[in-house]
Computed example of a mutant assay.
Amino acid sequence: MEDVEKTPMVVLLPEERVLTESLRGRDFSVIAPYVEEAFELALRGGWKKALVLNGPVYSTYLGYNPEPIKIALELGAIPDLSGKGPAFFALAEEPENLIHEWNRFGEVMVTKLR
């Protein structure tokens, strides 16, 4: 079993804020098959693939900039959308380059899973 708790987590907090009430009435059923696939992947142990599938599906549907996910993937990190967004996170063995790249999108911090 992987010890992901030791892997640094980079968090991007864009200046943009999204209020939960602004998402009410959205028809999430159109992305349900993809979200369900991500859930099934995670249950089967493919949690990294599940994160990489979940992030682009939700962020694209909600209209968030996909560039942070693209950059994280190119740098070998495992990215996803955090909650309803627009924040992103990525597990990154070497977070320095990702921190540098994500700084142009907003506030960036590094933490660890607990």
Rank of each mutant, 00 (worst) to 15 (best):
M1A: 13
M1E: 10
V4N: 12
V4S: 12
E5I: 07
E5F: 13
E5N: 12
K6S: 14
T7I: 15
T7H: 10
P8W: 05
P8M: 07
M9C: 13
R17V: 14
V18G: 04
V18P: 03
L19G: 13
L19Y: 11
E21R: 15
S22Y: 09
L23C: 12
L23A: 11
R24V: 14
G25P: 10
G25D: 13
R26C: 11
D27R: 09
D27M: 08
V30Q: 13
I31C: 05
P33S: 10
P33T: 06
Y34T: 01
V35I: 15
E36A: 14
E40R: 09
A42S: 10
R44F: 08
G45K: 09
K48S: 11
K49P: 01
A50M: 07
L51G: 01
L53E: 05
N54P: 00
N54G: 04
P56F: 08
P56R: 08
P56T: 05
V57E: 03
Y58C: 08
S59P: 06
S59I: 02
Y61H: 08
G63R: 04
G63Q: 04
P66A: 07
P68N: 01
P68L: 08
P68V: 06
I69L: 15
I69P: 00
I69Q: 01
I71D: 00
A72N: 03
A72H: 03
A72D: 02
E74N: 15
E74D: 15
I78H: 02
I78T: 14
S82G: 10
S82R: 01
G83Q: 08
G85R: 02
P86G: 11
A87F: 05
F88K: 01
F89C: 00
F89N: 00
L91W: 02
L91V: 07
E93K: 15
E93C: 12
E94P: 07
E94S: 15
E94G: 11
P95A: 06
E96L: 10
N97I: 02
N97Q: 11
H100T: 11
E101N: 11
E101W: 02
W102T: 02
W102Q: 02
W102C: 04
W102M: 06
R104G: 11
F105D: 03
V110R: 08
K112E: 05
K112D: 00
K112S: 07
R114P: 10
R114Y: 04
